[in-house]
């Protein structure tokens, strides 16, 4: 029973990974791409690791999958934050149909 639930959760995670990568290709500028790909790929990888834990149970593989999930939960948003800040400081403009840019108005 656990194996079936695990396979379904892994399938959902892989689908979210694919959606995130489509967003990476389709959206217009760096910040939008960062949003779509970070959110969808993080949740997709969590789902894959949760499915691994459900299939393998309390073995070495399952516990390492849980620890890897915790690590990704800390690492992925921090990396996105650093990339967005670096891109803005490197002078990359927002998309031309953007509404407002308070960060540039404040002269940072």
């Amino acid at each position: 029973m656990n194996e079936v639930i695990g396979l379904v959760i892994i399938g959902i995670g892989v689908a979210f990974n694919l959606l995130g990568c489509i967003g990476l290709v389709r959206l217009p500028d760096v910040y939008n791409r960062l949003q779509a790909s970070t959110k969808c790929v993080t949740l997709g990888t969590w789902s894959i690791l949760l499915g691994t834990f459900l299939i393998c149970g309390f073995t070495a593989i399952g516990m390492k999958a849980i620890l890897c999930g915790v690590l990704i939960a800390f690492a992925s948003p921090t990396a996105a934050h650093a990339l967005a800040r670096g891109a803005h400081k490197a002078g990359i403009k927002l998309w031309e149909r953007s509404v407002c840019d308070k960060y540039e108005e404040d002269g940072k």
Partner: peptide
């Protein structure tokens, strides 16, 4: 993103 995909 490629680095996170490898974990899967």
């Amino acid at each position: 993103i490629l680095g996170i995909l490898v974990v899967g």
